[in-house]
């Protein structure tokens, strides 16, 4: 299984790009949140882009990751985007109501 590393967190302009691992679950959530929050504190990040290109599985832990990061940037008018989200990920967005705060880009 593909492991997530610090290279999967990049800041481009005012966007934090997070390339999510193959499986987004509770086991991986801690690492993702820690790294994301470290960068959110350090830099003038306004928006977050979650890249689901490698992601084949996500459970409600993923919803927690996205909701938690959203709360940290929404007060500064930041937005959350999802790219490369497959049908199952979109379905999870819909069921959780997360599609109201995440903009899914094609």
């Amino acid at each position: 299984m593909e492991q997530i590393s610090t290279e999967d967190f990049q800041i481009i302009d005012n966007c934090l790009m997070i390339r999510l691992p193959e499986e987004v679950d509770h086991h991986r959530a801690g690492y993702i949140c820690e790294n994301a929050d470290r960068l959110l504190m350090r830099d003038e990040v306004r928006n977050i882009v979650f890249d689901f290109e490698n992601t084949r599985f996500m459970d409600s832990s993923g919803i927690g990751i996205i909701m938690g990061r959203y709360r940290k940037i929404e007060c500064f008018g930041g937005r959350v985007y999802a790219i490369h989200a497959d049908r199952q990920i979109r379905r999870i967005f819909l069921i959780s109501g997360l599609n109201k705060i995440v903009e899914v880009l094609e």
């Binding site: 509770h26 959530a29 949140c33 409600s60 832990s61 919803i63 927690g64 990751i65 909701m67 938690g68 069921i95 959780s96």
Partner: peptide, 8 residues
């Protein structure tokens, strides 16, 4: 910071 969506 989990979602509370497990049972749902």
């Amino acid at each position: 910071e989990r979602s509370g969506m497990g049972f749902a």
